[in-house]
């Protein structure tokens, strides 16, 4: 870990401004991802701005019947919230499928969205990795890629986004609210938050320097059956090989987002229209431009089979 300075911000504006004004500054929330990466010198911020005391830890109703989730709401608290459990069960289930109780007690809403990939080569600083060190190459492409992405990938990087929560939020059309260093705010649909790797896998999202996530807004509840199915090698405490977040209506229409298979939560509204015709009708489109490796090609069949099971459960 490199030496860094630390401040605890007391207002949103001050936090954003401080971050923009200092080269190499970063926000720290729960620290469950950032600190690990700092210890390995994969992240080397020179200055940390602690955003835990900004009062962003509330869940409030919005005028149009949705919920605004403060950026610092802990994963545990979010999953336990009565309104979330009742109206957005998908999100509660996704959260509880993630990490462990201890981690969820620390992990925050914003931090979870911005957590970085679990590609093993990204974590080993002796290995080439375009995401960690642009231009150094990608060791995963010809190496161990079983866990990694099959869609949305590039020749530069095949890393996947590890979050469960984000997949549910994508299915729920969440909107990310931010404050920029000049004090202006914006709302970013979650679909637009993460970027695909292309030639620049080290740039993972559209936030500007110093831009602070303040909340995630869920539009008003959509009803339907909420199913989150996470597929993994062991029963708990493992990242998804594949996950499916689905909201299925009585008439068979609905929404589907997939996790574990792409650099961001993966959803295709056009593909989703095939839902009433079964899993294959959806995955044919959802995975149309897949570029799996030999080791992770099984994920294509797995997505389809898992979605089938989810739809059967929804009908059930």
């Amino acid at each position: 870990m490199r030496a860094f300075s630390y401040e605890r911000a007391s207002t949103i504006e001050a936090a954003a401004k401080a971050a923009a004004g200092t080269d190499g500054a970063k926000f720290i929330a729960g620290g469950t991802n950032l600190l690990d990466l700092m210890k390995l010198e994969i992240e080397t911020p020179t200055h940390l701005i602690d955003v835990n005391r900004l009062g962003l830890d509330r869940i409030e109703p919005t005028p149009d019947g949705g919920l605004r989730i403060g950026a610092l709401v802990r994963n545990t608290d979010l999953a336990a919230d009565g309104r979330i459990r009742r109206d957005y069960a998908l999100l509660a289930r996704a959260l509880l499928a993630g990490a462990s109780g201890q981690l969820r007690n620390r992990a925050t809403t914003a931090g979870n969205l911005l957590q970085r990939t679990r590609c093993p080569y990204f974590y080993d600083t002796n290995q080439p990795c375009n995401k960690r060190q642009p231009g150094s190459g990608c060791a995963a492409l010809g190496g161990f890629s079983r866990q990694l992405a099959v869609v949305g990938v590039s020749d530069a990087c095949i890393a996947n986004h590890p979050s469960d929560m984000a997949v549910a939020m994508r299915a729920l059309d969440a909107i990310v609210e931010t404050v920029r260093s000049d004090g202006t705010t914006r709302s970013i649909p979650i679909a637009d938050l993460h970027r695909l790797p292309g030639d620049t896998p080290h740039i993972e999202h559209v936030l500007e320097r110093g831009e602070l996530i303040t909340a995630v807004v869920l539009p008003k509840p959509v009803g339907g059956k909420h199913i989150y199915r996470k597929v993994r090698d062991r029963a708990s405490y493992a990242f998804a090989l594949v996950s499916i977040a689905a909201v299925v209506m009585q008439d068979g229409t609905g929404r589907v987002a997939a996790g574990g298979i792409a650099p961001k939560p993966w959803r295709d509204e056009a593909a989703e229209r095939g839902l009433p015709n079964g899993a294959k009708a959806v995955t044919a489109k959802l995975l149309a431009n897949a570029h799996p490796t030999e080791q992770n090609a099984f994920k294509l069949a797995l997505v389809e089979r898992t979605l089938s099971a989810v739809l059967a459960e929804a009908r059930g």
């Binding site: 093993p120 080993d124 290995q127 060791a139 190496g143 161990f144 090698d233 062991r234 029963a235 990242f239």
Partner: peptide
């Protein structure tokens, strides 16, 4: 990793031993 010659999943997240569940 047959190219680079090492065990890639060298932590307890990558090397999965059973958990209680």
């Amino acid at each position: 990793d047959k190219e680079r010659g090492f065990f890639v999943n060298h932590d307890l997240a990558g090397y999965e031993v059973p958990v209680h569940a």
